[in-house]
Amino acid sequence: EKTLKIVADSEEEAEALAKELAEKYNLEVTIERNPEEEGKYVITIKIKP
């Protein structure tokens, strides 16, 4: 299993990107607040072998 993390500037941007990735590529995608940067969100994508 591989994990890729993407940082987005807004929750709306994160949700839109996560939804597109999940639907288009059938990936497991989660969104959470970035504890290191206020106002940023981390999109985590898990790629199963």
Rank of each mutant, 00 (worst) to 15 (best):
E1L: 05
E1W: 01
E1R: 05
E1Y: 01
E1K: 09
K2P: 10
K2Q: 12
K2V: 15
K2D: 10
T3F: 10
T3Y: 12
T3L: 13
L4F: 10
L4W: 10
L4K: 05
L4T: 06
L4G: 04
K5E: 07
K5L: 12
K5T: 15
K5H: 13
I6D: 01
I6F: 14
I6K: 02
I6R: 02
I6L: 05
V7G: 10
V7H: 14
V7C: 15
V7D: 10
V7P: 10
V7R: 10
V7A: 09
A8I: 13
D9Y: 13
D9N: 13
D9K: 07
D9E: 10
D9C: 10
S10W: 01
S10V: 01
S10H: 02
S10M: 01
S10F: 02
E11G: 03
E11H: 11
E11V: 13
E11F: 15
E11T: 05
E11L: 15
E11R: 15
E12Q: 11
E12S: 09
E12F: 10
E12T: 06
E12D: 08
E13Y: 06
E13A: 10
E13W: 09
E13K: 07
E13R: 05
A14S: 02
A14Q: 00
A14G: 02
A14D: 00
A14T: 01
E15W: 15
E15P: 00
E15M: 15
E15Y: 15
L17K: 06
L17V: 10
L17F: 09
L17H: 02
L17E: 01
A18F: 04
A18N: 01
A18Q: 05
A18L: 07
A18K: 05
A18M: 05
A18T: 02
A18Y: 04
K19N: 05
K19G: 04
K19T: 07
E20F: 15
E20N: 10
E20Y: 15
E20C: 14
E20R: 13
E20M: 15
E20S: 11
L21P: 00
L21S: 01
L21I: 11
L21W: 06
L21R: 00
L21E: 00
A22C: 08
A22Y: 12
A22P: 00
A22M: 14
A22V: 13
E23K: 12
E23Q: 12
E23W: 06
K24R: 11
K24I: 09
K24T: 04
K24M: 07
Y25M: 05
Y25Q: 03
Y25A: 02
Y25T: 04
Y25H: 08
Y25W: 06
N26L: 05
N26P: 03
N26E: 05
N26F: 08
N26V: 03
N26I: 02
N26T: 04
L27P: 01
L27G: 15
L27D: 03
L27Y: 15
L27Q: 09
L27H: 07
L27F: 12
E28G: 03
E28F: 07
E28T: 10
E28A: 06
E28P: 11
V29A: 06
V29I: 07
T30H: 09
T30K: 07
T30V: 12
T30L: 07
T30F: 08
T30W: 10
I31H: 01
I31T: 02
I31M: 04
I31D: 00
I31E: 00
E32N: 07
E32D: 11
R33A: 14
R33N: 08
R33T: 08
R33C: 05
R33Y: 08
R33K: 14
N34C: 15
N34K: 05
N34Q: 09
N34H: 15
P35L: 10
P35M: 13
P35E: 11
P35Q: 10
P35Y: 12
E36A: 11
E36G: 15
E36S: 12
E36F: 11
E36N: 15
E36P: 03
E36M: 11
E36H: 12
E37Q: 12
E37S: 09
E37H: 14
E37G: 10
E37T: 10
E38T: 07
E38N: 12
E38C: 08
E38W: 04
G39D: 06
G39L: 03
G39S: 05
G39V: 02
K40L: 03
K40H: 09
K40T: 09
Y41E: 00
Y41C: 03
Y41S: 02
Y41D: 01
V42Y: 05
V42R: 02
V42A: 02
V42Q: 04
V42I: 14
V42F: 07
I43C: 03
I43Q: 00
I43N: 00
T44Y: 08
T44R: 04
T44I: 15
T44G: 02
I45S: 01
I45N: 00
I45Y: 01
K46I: 15
K46F: 10
K46D: 04
K46G: 04
K46N: 08
K46W: 04
K46T: 13
I47Q: 06
I47S: 10
I47E: 06
I47W: 14
K48H: 13
K48F: 13
K48C: 11
K48Q: 11
K48V: 11
K48L: 12
P49L: 15
P49V: 15
P49D: 12
P49K: 09
